[in-house]
């Protein structure tokens, strides 16, 4: 099993007192599987994704990726998981503005020591970025930036790709193109894909679908 999430709980402190976002979530994802996570705003879907990506820590429960439980791991160990096995595509692209497109694509692979120039080049080609490699992110459109972010995520060939509303900032046409590319590439590399979205149409294109409601799988 690529990903095994067991009984995750998470509570945030807010101005109005504690707010329990996740109240015992379980989910499993096999290699090559794709899963859509839907839910209303505030249902906890982004929080769950961040926990799986090691960006945040659950209060309770286990998150096992390729046999490693990252729920109790320290910052360095979680950073290593993020670097090596898990790739995250954010809604806001999160590119490094001072690096060129080419350097941005290669960046995470270099961090993970898994840089393969040919694969990076192929990714850039597939993503339609071949003519933009020397540009800086600010010179690209939103759709192009998100394609750079996806290429960056896939460059080290992660086992698990997490995507948080990856097309949320894109118009419908661009969103469809980007989505196609992501699904194709995920299938090519055999990576598992877990995508958070509120779009039923997008969710329908993935293998499975889970709906979060009030912190639980509905």
């Amino acid at each position: 099993m690529l990903l095994d999430v067991k009984n995750i709980h998470k509570t945030y402190q807010t101005a109005d007192g504690p707010f329990e976002v996740l109240r015992g979530v379980d989910l499993r994802l096999g290699e090559g599987e794709t899963l859509a996570l839907t839910g209303e705003s505030g249902s906890g879907k982004s929080t769950l994704l961040h926990l799986i990506g090691g960006l945040d820590m659950p209060d309770r429960g286990a998150i096992v990726i390729n046999g490693h439980d990252i729920a109790g791991a320290d910052d360095a160990a979680r950073a290593a998981i993020r670097r090596g096995s898990v790739g995250v595509v954010f809604q806001q692209f999160n590119l490094i503005p001072s690096l060129t497109v080419a350097d941005n694509i290669a960046f995470q692979a270099r961090l993970a020591d898994k840089y393969d120039p040919q694969w990076s080049e192929a990714l850039a080609g597939t993503m339609g970025l071949a003519d933009h490699l020397r540009k800086y992110p600010e010179q690209l459109s939103g759709g192009q930036q998100q394609r750079v972010a996806i290429a960056r995520t896939l460059a080290p060939k992660p086992a698990l790709v997490l995507a948080d509303e990856p097309t949320g900032n894109l118009d419908e046409d661009t969103a469809r193109v980007v989505m196609d590319l992501m699904l194709d590439l995920a299938a090519d590399t055999g990576a598992g894909l877990l995508m958070v979205t509120h779009s039923q149409a997008l969710a329908g294109r993935l293998g499975r679908r889970l709906h979060l409601k009030a912190g639980r799988i509905a």
Binding site: A79, I96, F107
Partner: peptide, 13 residues
């Protein structure tokens, strides 16, 4: 923001 991105990409703090 860059620091945040770097950490999200797996650079230990």
């Amino acid at each position: 923001p860059v620091v945040r991105t770097l950490r999200a990409l797996g650079v230990p703090l």
